[in-house]
Design a protein around this nucleic acid. Sequence first.
DNA 1: AATGAATGAGAGTTCATTCAT
DNA 2: TATGAATGAACTCTCATTCAT
Lengths: 231, 231, 231, 231
Amino acid sequence: MTDAPRTARGTRTRARLLEAAEQVFAECGYSEASIVRITEAAGVAQGTFYLYFSSKLEIFEELVEDLNRRVRHAMTEAAAGATTRIESERAGFRGFFEFTAQHPALYRIVREAEFVSPSALRLHYTRIVDGYIDGLSTARDNGEVGDINPGIVAWILMGIGEMVGMRWVLWGSDVADDGAAGAENDPTASGTSRVPDEVFEQMMRFIQRGLGAPAPGTPPEHAQKTGKDRT
Amino acid sequence: MTDAPRTARGTRTRARLLEAAEQVFAECGYSEASIVRITEAAGVAQGTFYLYFSSKLEIFEELVEDLNRRVRHAMTEAAAGATTRIESERAGFRGFFEFTAQHPALYRIVREAEFVSPSALRLHYTRIVDGYIDGLSTARDNGEVGDINPGIVAWILMGIGEMVGMRWVLWGSDVADDGAAGAENDPTASGTSRVPDEVFEQMMRFIQRGLGAPAPGTPPEHAQKTGKDRT
Amino acid sequence: MTDAPRTARGTRTRARLLEAAEQVFAECGYSEASIVRITEAAGVAQGTFYLYFSSKLEIFEELVEDLNRRVRHAMTEAAAGATTRIESERAGFRGFFEFTAQHPALYRIVREAEFVSPSALRLHYTRIVDGYIDGLSTARDNGEVGDINPGIVAWILMGIGEMVGMRWVLWGSDVADDGAAGAENDPTASGTSRVPDEVFEQMMRFIQRGLGAPAPGTPPEHAQKTGKDRT
Amino acid sequence: MTDAPRTARGTRTRARLLEAAEQVFAECGYSEASIVRITEAAGVAQGTFYLYFSSKLEIFEELVEDLNRRVRHAMTEAAAGATTRIESERAGFRGFFEFTAQHPALYRIVREAEFVSPSALRLHYTRIVDGYIDGLSTARDNGEVGDINPGIVAWILMGIGEMVGMRWVLWGSDVADDGAAGAENDPTASGTSRVPDEVFEQMMRFIQRGLGAPAPGTPPEHAQKTGKDRT
DNA sequence: AATGAATGAGAGTTCATTCAT
DNA sequence: TATGAATGAACTCTCATTCAT
């Protein structure tokens, strides 16, 4: 009754609907987004929507799944060339922020998903977290980080990334915010993401210390202790 | 055209509406919540609502403001007796999680606010963050933590608290989640909040290290203590 | 959330909706009838409908119930003055046909109810049938009719009345129908109903005989046997 | 613009559509039935439907026509071997009930047809009635029944059959119904139809008497036989 | 201060039908 | 002959809001 297109034309239409949905959801959020808006954006009739999706919720969940796949891809892709744990972490966060900057939908959609589709929300977070867990477990076993519990610390990293991403990528550096003034005034951010360098560095330094990781270039046996010496 | 009640009866009605709204918003989210439901829960007629609030948005924003005031109160109250920075931090997080456990509305409402009232959302986060900034600035000047940028690190702490709160307070410890298995199986959480002790301790250790703070029981002259000296 | 009006105005509106619904259902049948049509006919807004009825089905069922009550009232009322069983039967059918002529909705609605609300349909028939059963049981015990099973014969009477009503009241006497030509050409029907006299008399004679009832003015002891002698 | 298939394959497809339609209409009624459902049940694409039928109404009317032909066939077939009028009547009703039991569609569809296609409905009834009229006219001329008006009595028989069929074939014997209790408890019905024997016998006795026909086993010179002589 | 009837725009969804392939 | 994508009007139903009482 719905779902899989059987011709090339159908495939194209379905894809256009998904694109339109991402755009509309990002702009107005789940509940303000309407099928009319989505189909208008996709340039098809309302009825066409129901040829491929059985409800607004269904396309939403597919979209969350899709974005999740893409953000994870962006993160692993970014981290691909890294040789040390911490480099990989840096690259991963960079990838995350850049993806967020390019697809603000991710953030907006995911946060609202709490009410719309709790299961989709959990799956999204859990999948990303699982990636962190893998990396952290390996790093711990290699002595690259301290004796942390990866299943917990992964959520911490997730929280940091999400909040920093919201604050600096989504809101931008022009937000009135006493106290971080220095950073605000410097909109020069590396890459395409809008996280100012100082913010990114502070964040990475915090994480590194938090993980009990040796500073870059420091012999591994001094790990946590000598973290202060760098810079 | 609305707003301030002029009699004691009116004051009571208004309060009942706010209470009902918190409950209804927490249960269904902003857009699913309807005035009918709120007025029903408050035991008044639909028209009565508009005697005290000019729109659904208005009561929502007032509610966010109210919750924000209360969560900050809970945090400072909890931290009141603390003598060291880290103790205060611990107590603050404890207070935060406990409040969240008792008022899941906070989380749910705030996360959806992104689309409903971005300004309310920002105000909420900013106010909490400002509290962190104050504490962190003082701590840095006292040498209790490393030479961090409080305007950035505050957001990091916010992110950690929010994600851990979502994961363990809102979702509970019974969520399937490979990797943090040990923690999951131990639902003994201190206080009324549902964050398992191990999770809480891991989080605090991460934060402490991240801040460049001396580990508890560690002689202050060592490693982390001097973190502030750099730069 | 729906149903009972609390003011005189509300009561009036609800009644207008029911009236409009009867009219619209009679005209177009259940599925072609739309809430728009009903509310337009009632002169209220669409939303108003849902103040008093939670769905099209609900108003339909209430209407069937209502019509059922009224048709039974019309039948018993008509039969009130009758002294013998057969007189009462005659009067009852007369009442039935007259009501049908004035409220064609009854027929149309009830017949379509098979798909819409089987329970309402059954209740409708069962209630009328129960009336027949009572009358027939008494008549049998009095020796006014033969040794029939009232629980079966009642349905037979129901069927006769319904079909004759459909054929002559609803379709009218102007229907092309070879074979009953004589009756057709005589549109003079007693009372306000449109069942031609000959049809009514044939029907009553059939029923009388079928019941094993003595012809009017015949001593009861000859009951079935001498039925032929009358006229 | 549509209609007649030109190949064997087309003929098969058309037949499959009709079959599917009967099934779907019987299940959901006319308005709830959708072309999608019919085509799905038939295993063809939606567009294919319009190759053979120009509209939903058209297939409906063809179906009513078809069923009408078949039910009449079933009735005449069943009555074929009968030697007396009353035997033939019995057999005819048996055939009718059996057909109804096997094709509940007949009932359901026909009753809803009132709104969908009044002309089809009338044609359906009229044709069956015409069969009765023929039989009754002959019987009357032969003195097998009283001096009835076949054009009227035929409709009476139709009504009896329809109501008994609805009550016992469609609803079944397990319907709560005070008064006919004895019959309910005996689900042993002859043939494949579900009309209990007692119900069938009561019905036939009623009809026989109503027609002024001699009871079976009654010497023809008595009572009912001479009913025709009156007037 | 409080009520609850009334509104009407707009939501999601269905479906008979058309048409290019 | 057969497909299935596409249409768009129509449907039922919801809800924030207004207003007479």
